[in-house]
């Protein structure tokens, strides 16, 4: 059994850094959101680089601005958005594990590309579980430490289980961060599985949805991404509240679509066109306001095959051992 020890002291928490394991599942019927990492790809690789099981608790860092003081020697890895990382002022690489010693200062600067990065530590952060998960859902004030984002002065416990392997994910195997953090030329395509009230939207609105370019608005967070573009409203007046799955594209009466993410409300009554597949949600979560978004259709068989393929590809990927 791993011993729990104080691992880090938070010197600076950043705009919103939240402890996340793989998510809180099985409790949506009681109204609890799933939580969990928005970019599951980057989260997965951070765990693999630390030789962790792929459900261990990591920190999801929004934008950057995090400073931690190590209280014990361990191994860590940072993946995802391109944030400059230093240990005691010395520049360190993303997508590979790093040794850190007690007393060292880890600084994660602000991102130049992408929005979210994942900091995993060997053995995982040790956080009390609520309903089987450590995931922080700030809106519900649960999970993590007191249901909130990281605050200066907090001590982060870790499971002391130091692996001596220093690993790297080859550049060709890394997920591509497609968007810059500021409004730029970036454009992403999200594949949507038509479903829910799809057939009830007028034909013309469905065509408009798949042929137009939308822009990520300023209202984008862990609950959902609001997009601006042509009016694709359904004309459906009232709908009984129903369960909402990850990636559901709901269209309120103003005709502006919202892609619902991990911290979404569990039920709601707006008409939905379908859902964005999870592989593409990882990409969307790295995009900030101004990013251009287009939608394309995917069939149920394709979507299912994508999940299995992506998983197979990940599991087969060998990490590079840097200290052989």
């Amino acid at each position: 059994m791993a011993k729990v020890i104080p691992g880090f002291k938070v010197i600076q928490g950043g705009p919103q850094s939240v402890l996340q394991d793989s998510g809180r599942f099985g409790y949506q019927k009681l109204g609890f959101a799933n939580g969990g990492p928005l970019d599951v790809e980057s989260y997965y690789w951070a765990q693999r680089l630390c030789d962790n099981n792929t459900e261990a608790t990591a920190i999801e860092i929004l934008l950057g601005g995090v400073v931690l003081e190590a209280l014990a020697g361990t191994v860590l890895a940072i993946t995802g958005a391109e944030m400059p990382v230093t240990i005691n002022g010395e520049r360190k690489e993303l997508w590979q594990s790093q040794r850190i010693n007690a007393g060292d200062q880890l600084e994660i600067g602000f991102t130049s590309k992408g929005l979210r990065s994942y900091l995993a530590v060997s053995g995982g952060f040790d956080v009390p579980e609520f309903l089987g998960s450590s995931s922080t859902v700030v809106r519900e004030e649960i999970g993590g430490l007191d249901g909130k984002a990281l605050q200066a002065g907090q001590i982060l416990d870790i499971n002391n289980q130091v692996n001596d392997r220093i690993l790297m994910l080859a550049e060709s195997d890394r997920p591509k961060i497609q968007a810059s953090s500021s409004a730029g030329a970036a454009e992403i395509v999200l594949r949507v599985l038509p479903g829910y009230q799809f057939e009830k939207f007028p034909e013309e609105k469905r065509q408009l949805f798949f042929s137009s370019t939308f822009k990520v608005s300023n209202r984008c967070d862990r609950m959902g991404y609001c997009l601006n573009g042509p009016d694709v409203s359904s004309g459906i007046s009232s709908l009984l509240s129903e369960g909402i799955c990850l990636g559901a594209v709901q269209v309120p009466p103003d005709g502006q679509p919202i892609v619902l993410l991990n911290d979404r409300q569990t039920i709601g009554g707006y008409p939905k066109l379908g859902s964005v597949v999870s592989c593409d949600i990882s990409k969307l979560a790295q995009c900030g306001p101004g990013t251009r978004v287009r939608f394309s259709k995917i069939s149920v068989r394709q979507a299912h095959a994508e999940i299995l393929l992506a998983n197979e590809r990940r599991e087969r990927t060998q990490l590079v051992n840097l200290e052989l």
Binding site: F25, G26, Y27, Q28, K29, N34, L240, S241, E242, G243, I244, C245, T266, I267, H304, I307, L308, N311
Partner: peptide, 20 residues
């Protein structure tokens, strides 16, 4: 993985590695 009952509907979220 999750069952979300509501007024007149039931959303079933399943493990794609175990069923389809």
């Amino acid at each position: 993985i999750d069952l979300v009952p509501s007024y007149a509907s039931l959303l079933v979220i399943f493990d794609p590695f175990r069923t389809h």
